[in-house]
Computed example of a mutant assay.
Amino acid sequence: MMKRPFFSIVIPFYNRAWSVERAIASAVAFGTQGVDTEIILIDDGSKDDSRNVVKRVIDGYASNAQPIIRLVVHERNLGVCAAKNTGAKLATGMWVVFLDSDDELIQSAATEVHRSLQTYRRYPLHFFACVEEQGLLSRAADRIEQRAFNDFLLKGTGGEALPVVLNDVFREYLYDEDIRGYESLCYLRMVREHNYALLHSLVVRRYYTEHEDRLSSRAGMKRRWHDLAKGHLRVISQHCSVMTLPVLLKQCGRFLKAKMLAVVP
């Protein structure tokens, strides 16, 4: 019987021939630090050369004692949340790490992440700190912080973060596939049911802002105000009964702002 991997690193990609090789290389390096790891790549209907790049990279690792790498193909573009869900459903690891295809994992952090998850395994939802390509940290706090539902809704993760989720729990929630890039809907359901999310100061991911197709880029944000408005409204409809009044008012303000910006030319 095969041993269950500790990590399943899920990397969805769409038209990322220019960056996906870097992401895969970092996942392989992360997975060779003494912790059993599998890597699942989801081609979300790419129209560029991404799939050929990935196949070539996988072939290059095939003869080495590297983490198992699998490629799954969506014949049409279903969106990043659907691609992540596909990866999570196929994952056999205890913990799922979601890595964007234009970012990279920091190899030296693997053993510390493993140790942290073992120590705090009663929490099914973790967020690890990130560093921007120029060295700017996403979270300055030098501590581990737990956030309950209203605090998490109000403050989020405090910046760019790498989500790591307990596989068996995450499958009960999954991402909302009809709203591109609004993963927080899933996280809020998890925090509401399991009391807390855990935020770590350990830096595990390096992210890049070099390309305009990032959802968090200025151009990406302009394209997705409509989705943000839809997501903010869904948060209110699903969770208003447990929101404090200040948090409810804040969320209503977010919805109104996104709704207005969605119609601005």
Rank of each mutant, 00 (worst) to 15 (best):
H239D: 12
S19D: 09
A23C: 10
M2S: 14
L71Q: 00
I179P: 01
M221Q: 14
L256A: 15
P67V: 04
P163V: 00
K55M: 14
S26M: 05
N77Y: 08
Y120R: 05
C186N: 04
I58T: 06
T244H: 06
D142Q: 15
Y182P: 01
V164S: 02
E193L: 05
V73I: 13
M1R: 11
L117K: 04
L154E: 13
R224I: 11
Q146Y: 10
Q66A: 15
V169R: 03
L125W: 03
R51A: 10
E193V: 06
L166Q: 09
A262Y: 03
S217D: 09
E177P: 00
A91L: 00
Q251D: 07
K222N: 12
V191E: 05
A91S: 11
G231V: 06
Y196S: 09
A197S: 10
F127R: 01
V113Q: 02
L99N: 04
F149P: 03
L188C: 07
V57R: 08
I144G: 02
D178A: 10
Y208V: 08
V73F: 00
L261T: 07
D59A: 15
A88P: 00
I9K: 01
F255L: 11
G60C: 05
D213V: 10
R147T: 08
M2T: 10
D36K: 10
A29Q: 10
E38V: 00
S8Y: 01
D142E: 14
K250S: 14
S26H: 05
N150W: 07
N85L: 00
R180N: 10
H194F: 08
D59S: 15
L174D: 00
G93Y: 01
R56D: 15
A141I: 10
T111A: 11
S237C: 08
F30A: 02
R192Q: 12
R254Y: 11
L248E: 09
S116H: 13
I106R: 02
F30G: 03
G135M: 06
G135F: 04
H226V: 11
V97Q: 03
E212H: 12
E210P: 02
A110Q: 07
N52S: 13
V57C: 11
Y61E: 04
S108V: 14
V191C: 04
A262C: 08
S216A: 11
R76L: 12
H226C: 09
C130L: 06
I58A: 02
R234K: 13
L105T: 04
M94H: 07
L174M: 13
Q107H: 06
E133L: 09
V247H: 05
R254K: 13
R56Y: 07
F128W: 06
V35M: 06
P5K: 01
R16A: 12
L233A: 13
H211Q: 12
L153C: 11
R70M: 01
H226L: 15
S237Y: 09
E160C: 13
K3D: 12
L202R: 08
R122S: 15
N77S: 08
V264F: 10
H194K: 11
Y196V: 15
D227M: 07
L199Q: 03
C130K: 02
L105Q: 03
V165M: 14
Y61Q: 04
A141K: 09
R122H: 12
I106K: 02
P5L: 02
D168P: 03
R224F: 11
N150Y: 08
S184I: 11
G231M: 05
E21N: 10
Q107F: 04
Y61W: 09
A141T: 09
A258N: 08
R147L: 14
I9L: 03
W18M: 06
L198M: 14
